[in-house]
């Protein structure tokens, strides 16, 4: 589903160059549940941003569903994000003035999907918080908010979900519950999950572990 070939990302080109990614080549199949880990500054977030079409590589090729997206404009990348990619962040990034239901609904609206109320409630039910549909983010715990963000990412049936340190703000109990929920979704809907993490718990759930160091792939292990 995803093919990266000799991907490079250089900051400050022509000045004091920083190579965030250096000749990274990866293939990711549909339905994979993989983590990208490595020390700070190894290029995890940069890789995740490029995979999520939030950023573009300095050189190299990025094929998403066999389409070369490395040369697309920001507007075209926005279209790909809207329909194919879901995001989960460490800080949840829910819209504070919208309820859990509305946050999930917004994702469908932006994806221009036709939907019914049940679709949203089902997505919330999938992550076990259907009862909290009318609550605002401030009225929920961190774990509950992260579940909303998972439901928000999943509801539009994306091909790929990118999760940047999704358990970093959660206690171990909540982190385990969240990981179980995502694993379940991965198995149920065959959606691809890519995690950027330091957390051994997240890595314990992964079927594939990619380790980055200094912008290069150091190891790529499958369990």
């Amino acid at each position: 589903m995803i093919k990266l070939e000799n991907l490079k990302k250089t900051y400050n080109p022509g000045k004091i160059e920083v190579h965030a990614l250096d000749n990274v080549s990866i293939n990711i199949e549909e339905g994979e549940f993989l983590t990208i880990h490595g020390p700070s500054g190894s290029g995890k977030t940069t890789l995740l941003n490029i995979l999520g079409c939030l950023d573009i590589a300095t050189s190299g090729d990025y094929y998403f569903k066999e389409r070369d997206v490395s040369k697309l404009s920001m507007s075209d990348l926005s279209n790909i994000r809207r329909t194919n990619i879901g995001f989960i962040f460490q800080t949840y990034n829910l819209i504070p003035v919208l309820t859990a239901y509305e946050n999930v609904e917004l994702s469908l609206m932006l994806a221009h999907r036709k939907y019914k109320k049940e679709d949203i409630l089902n997505a919330l039910d999938d992550v076990g918080i259907k009862d909290l549909a009318k609550r605002f983010p401030r009225e929920m715990s961190g774990g509950q908010q992260q579940r909303v963000s998972i439901a928000r990412a999943l509801v539009k049936s994306p091909k790929l979900i990118l999760a940047d340190e999704p358990t970093a703000n959660l206690d171990s109990e909540n982190a385990t519950m969240i990981m179980k929920a995502m694993k379940e979704m991965n198995e149920k809907y065959n959606v691809t999950f890519v995690f950027s993490t330091h957390d051994p718990l997240v890595m314990s759930f992964a079927k594939r572990l990619i380790k980055l160091k200094d912008g290069k792939i150091e190891t790529d292990e499958r369990k």
């Binding site: 999520g52 939030l54 507007s75 926005s78 279209n79 994000r81 809207r82 329909t83 995001f87 962040f89 800080t91 990034n93 819209i95 504070p96 917004l106 994702s107 932006l110 994806a111 928000r152």
Partner: peptide, 14 residues
């Protein structure tokens, strides 16, 4: 700002 970033990540256009 962060919220705007999230909206854009979700595909909200300029």
């Amino acid at each position: 700002k962060r919220e705007i970033g999230m909206l854009k990540a979700m595909g909200m256009s300029r």
